[in-house]
Design a protein around this nucleic acid. Structure first.
Lengths: 363, 363
DNA sequence: AAAGTTAAAATAATCGCTAAAGCATTGAAA
DNA sequence: TTTCAATGCTTTAGCGATTATTTTAACTTT
């Protein structure tokens, strides 16, 4: 009867091994059958459980190696309920700041055994909602995100938090969201940048700000305004120009507009380097001397800004550190989540500092 | 007895519902139990199978919506043996060319229901091998890849092909690999670039080439050399400078070296824009007139190259199209693979063309 | 020699979903 | 009335791994 039983099992095995296009993947079952032991023992042997004899363990290890056994991650995911994959949503991959962050997150994640799925919102809240949904359905272990210009503490963000999915926001965050955050003090940084121009002797400073919605554009604008106040420079709203898409072209266009509307402007603080580079480009082409006539300072310390003539002064925004910090906060939360330990969201504010280069070196 | 049986099942269900930190995810079982129908029916209702009555279907749909049901992708993956996820390995995210490609691939993949896991090799073959292994273990449905400078048709590439994992290489490919490829005709493009300089009157052209191993650096170099031949310009090996890391700094350094070693050089063809920008930067700082004294042409049409003064002439490399094409080739192969249909690898060669800007506008 | 330990392996229950095959019920064709 | 076939569900059998629980065999102890 024992024999009969065995035979039945063997038949089953054959029946199951459907021939298809997939390269026959080695499974625990195959190893078990070959060695005439149970699947459990094979599993345990591979994971160094103590209750497997040295002899059996070796046999399993050897055969597993021979057959290039790799655990089926789909099955492991299902059992363990985690996929060692995180999701990252950013406005756009091609932006220098974000590529830096991506770079950091991918590397840091990998070092810690995680893979990263990247999605872009293209600054659209609709797309962003879709991306969040995709990641939730995918059941990633955690999500790192920088908001699009259109988003705030909207439904999709609440959904992530409600579902208790480990979640970190960086750079473009929503103040209302109760989750971990990694950011810089944009107001303070903008104050330093504006003060820098004033210290260099600028008396009439224009500000090319970012869109009206995102928090960091607001904060930079406030920083600019506060610093004028502090230095008893009257605030003139016509000196503030608002970008819609924060592009090189907008920098170019606003530079033209600034010079036409305020020929006596002697300083420009742009919300980000790309825009500042547009400004520089216009000034270059129109023989407006930088920094002699107009000093310019950007924001975020893009690699390219030190390559231009004149080299652009800027605020150093630690993109790489932001990526690393974001991942580590997420990791902490994912670990707590797994152990079913309550996790109190943390906010990390990273330091920035002014990098003085030619575009503001007046003295 | 039937009753007894049912009771047993119910108990089982309770026993299984372990209370843990995970938000109680709705399952088919839960819906089935609530409605008093079988799991299969629920599954079928949700997938619009014809053999479910309209009444039942509605009930299921409604409840599923109420409970925010989302299929457990881990289970679906295990059953269907696919994860609707592809892997992308590139040398580095931060490179402008690659961010463009990534951008295209992510968007295109998403439109077709796929998510993208991105990994970087950092130009190291060791890392690249590790990344490939990670993706294979992850059991992605397909892999898109651009080789690191150190890699060729090495073991890890063979492994992908042997395992019959749908696979597309782009840009930095290995000629020996029998897989789909998306690339440009680097030799031809380099010939056009060199010819362009010659047409502009250059007689002594230096070439800053890429590393010795990657195919596209080799091809661009050959294109350069062939074009000299064709124009009866003697080839002088001391006019060829070899980058190790293809950086801005190398452009800067080689520009210096070129001027020192060959003061009469009147043209420079750089393997990529970033290097060309380094060259321009050095020339700018040392009052070497571009293009009057030396004309410069780059490669790949980086966005920044039109922002500099002088604006850089370059070869337009269709990065976005490469991304789109790569994904679609992969998709074709993945579909064939799924249907167990043989798939013959395809090679796509995309068009390039010269973009003349100030840095070579001699006449 | 009976009872108690321990070591090593096997069984079974899941994870959540899919899909082939089976089984009632009902209306229509013969 | 009997037989067929459609309709609407359920059963059953996995996918490949993990892990709690049992079983078996071997070895001590007294």
């Amino acid at each position: 009867m024992g024999f009969n039983f065995n035979q039945t099992k063997t038949q089953k095995t054959f029946k199951t091994s459907i021939t298809n296009h997939f390269m026959k993947e080695t499974t625990l079952k195959e190893i078990a059958n070959t060695l005439g032991i149970s699947i459990t023992t094979v599993s345990k042997a591979l994971k160094n459980y103590p209750d497997v004899s040295e002899k059996t363990r070796q046999a399993v290890l050897d055969l597993a190696k021979d057959l290039h056994y790799t655990p089926n991650s789909f099955a492991v995911n299902l059992r363990t309920k985690e996929s060692k994959t995180i999701g990252l949503i950013i406005p756009e991959v091609m932006h220098h700041f974000f590529s830096n962050v991506i770079n950091a997150i991918i590397d840091e994640a990998e070092k810690n055994g995680y893979l990263v799925i990247i999605l872009q919102s293209n600054e659209s809240i609709e797309l962003e909602k879709k991306q969040v949904e995709l990641l939730i359905n995918k059941r990633v272990d955690g999500i790192i995100m920088s908001l699009s210009n259109e988003s705030n503490f909207d439904e999709h963000i609440k959904e992530i938090i409600n579902r208790k999915i480990p979640f970190v926001m960086f750079d473009k965050i929503s103040k209302l969201a109760n989750c971990s955050k990694v950011l810089i003090d944009d107001q303070k940084a903008a104050m330093s940048a504006t003060q820098h121009l004033i210290d260099k002797g600028c008396k009439k400073i224009a500000h090319i700000r970012g869109p009206l919605n995102p928090q960091n554009a607001i904060d930079r604008y406030i920083g600019y305004k506060k610093t004028l106040d502090k230095n008893q420079i009257p605030y003139d709203p016509t000196l503030v120009y608002t970008c819609e898409n924060v592009t090189f072209q907008e920098g170019l266009d606003f530079a033209k507009q600034i010079i036409e509307e305020h020929p006596d402007v002697d300083g420009v603080f742009a919300v980000t380097d790309l825009v500042a580079v547009g400004v520089l480009s216009y000034f270059n082409d129109h023989k407006i001397k930088v920094p002699q006539q107009v000093a310019v300072i950007g924001f975020s310390n893009w690699f390219m800004s030190q390559v231009l003539t004149p080299k652009l002064s800027t605020v150093d925004q630690p993109s790489h550190e932001m990526g690393v910090a974001s991942f580590h906060l997420l990791l902490e939360e994912m670990n707590a989540h797994k152990e079913n330990i309550a996790f109190a969201p943390k906010t990390l504010i990273l330091e920035t500092n002014i990098i003085e280069r030619d575009s503001s070196r007046k003295s």
